[in-house]
Design a binder for these strands. Structure first.
Lengths: 212, 212
DNA sequence: CCAAAAGTGTTTGATTTACACCCATGA
DNA sequence: TCATGGGTGTAAATCAAACACTTTTGG
C-alpha cells in the first residue's frame, strides 16, 4: 500500500528586463527526470504549510519577507501515486535580491512567463492559475511591493504592472490611479538618472500582504 | 510516529428565509466531541480531492451538479496531529432540494451565517474566508445559479444577493445591472403569485462554474 | 375599485479614458 | 541649447446612483 506524498510547489515570479519571469528547476530525479518544473519539496508535517513554502522559497532564492500566497491544492500530483497532493503557492520576489544556487544540480533558471515550455506534472496549469490570480489582485492590492525595491519611480511601478498584465497604460492616468488607490506615497527622495529631470521616488504605504 | 491525516471540509451555503445559512454537524466523536463543525471527511487517496468533496456534499445534502469550489488548505487541522491537513471547499445549494439525514447521529442542521457560534477546529476562520470569497465572486460570476431554482424571479435573485452581501439594492438598478451582465436571460414564462402583476422568470445563461 | 408586487426611464454625479504641453537636468 | 525622460490638467464619455409613477392581477 502506498503512502501519502504531500508536496509544496511554488510559482516564483520576478521581473527581468521588464518581463514577467518564473523560476524553474531542471529535475534531476525520477519521476519526470530531466524535465523543467516548479520548485517544491515534500511536506513532512513538522512545520505548517506556509512555513514550509517560505523555507523552500528562501532556500531557492534567498528571498525573505516577500509576498507568498496559497493558490490551491491539487491531487494526482504524481501519476504513479494517487495519494499525492501538491499544495501550490505563488511568490513575488525582487529579482535583484535573488541569489540562485549555481551549484545546485537542478540548475534553477528564470524563464519568461509567456514562453513557458511543457513542464513536469501539472505545472503548466498551476502557472496559468497563478498568473490569473496575480492579475486579479494587482489592481486592488499591494502585491507588487514584493517585486520592486523599497523605493521606486512611478515608471518602474508602471512597467511592473505592464509586465504582469501585458497591457500598456497611459502615464498620466496610471499615476493618478496609483495615487488615488492609497497604496503608495512619495518618499520625498529624488533619483537623478541622466540628462533629464529627476524622478520622485515612491514606496508602498503598507507591505503587509492582503489576503482575500 | 504519527501519520498523515487529510480531510476535506465543506462550507455548504443555502438561503433560508432570505438569510444566508451554513450547514453544520454536531460532532459525535473525538476530537472536539459534541462541538458543532463543518461537515467533512477523511481523504483516502482513492479519488481526487474534488470528487471526494462532491461525494461528501452529496451524502450530506443529496445535492448534485452544484457549485463547489476549493477555498484553501490548512495545516494543523487537528491539534493532536501536526500532520493533519484540511482541504477546504465551499458549495452553494438550493436548500429546497436538500434532504438532511435525520437519522444521522451528527444531526446536520442549518445555521444563520451571521450567528455562527464557536466551532470546532479552525472552522470559524474557514467560514469567514468562504463568505469573503463568495461575496467577491458574486458580482462578476454566475455562482448564484446554484442557490436558486432553474427559473426564478428578478426579486428572488435580488433577495439572494442581498442575503449574501447584507446590503439592499435598488430594484431598478439591480435589474439593469443583472441584465447588462449577460449572466441571466428571460425564459419567457411568467409566474402568477397573488393579487398582482405576474413576474417574468429568468434563468442563468450558463451553469458552468467560472473558476479564477 | 382596491391592494399588492412587477415593471420601467431619466437625471445627476462619479469615474475612467483620451490626449499634449511644459519642466528639470546633463552633455 | 538640445535631447531626454519626468511631471501635470482638462474635456468627453462611460458608468453608477438616486429616484416615482404606471401596469397587471386577484379578491
Amino acid at each position: 500500500m502506498q503512502n501519502y506524498e504531500i508536496a509544496t510547489v511554488i510559482v516564483i515570479f520576478g521581473i527581468i528586463d521588464k518581463q514577467l519571469n518564473i523560476l524553474l528547476v531542471n529535475r534531476s530525479a525520477e519521476p519526470e527526470n530531466n524535465k523543467w518544473a516548479l520548485p517544491g519539496g515534500l511536506w513532512l508535517g513538522e512545520k505548517n504549510l506556509q512555513e514550509t513554502a517560505t523555507d523552500k522559497l528562501l532556500s531557492e532564492t534567498g528571498a525573505k519577507d516577500v509576498y507568498l500566497e496559497q493558490l490551491f491544492t491539487l491531487s494526482g500530483l504524481n501519476a504513479s501515486n494517487p495519494k499525492g497532493l501538491a499544495v501550490c503557492y505563488f511568490a513575488l520576489v525582487n529579482e535583484k535580491n535573488v541569489q540562485l544556487r549555481k551549484e545546485d544540480s537542478w540548475h534553477p533558471k528564470w524563464f519568461n512567463a509567456n514562453e513557458i515550455l511543457d513542464l513536469a506534472f501539472q505545472n503548466n496549469l498551476v502557472i496559468e492559475r497563478a498568473i490569473n490570480r496575480i492579475e486579479s489582485k494587482l489592481e486592488y492590492s499591494n502585491v507588487a511591493y514584493s517585486l520592486l525595491p523599497n523605493e521606486f519611480t512611478m515608471r518602474e511601478l508602471q512597467e511592473t504592472y505592464e509586465a504582469i498584465t501585458g497591457k500598456n497604460y497611459d502615464r498620466r492616468n496610471f499615476r493618478k490611479k496609483m495615487i488615488s488607490n492609497n497604496l503608495i506615497q512619495e518618499t520625498g527622495n529624488l533619483r537623478k538618472a541622466g540628462a533629464h529631470r529627476p524622478s520622485s521616488l515612491y514606496e508602498f504605504i503598507s507591505k503587509v500582504p492582503t489576503i482575500y
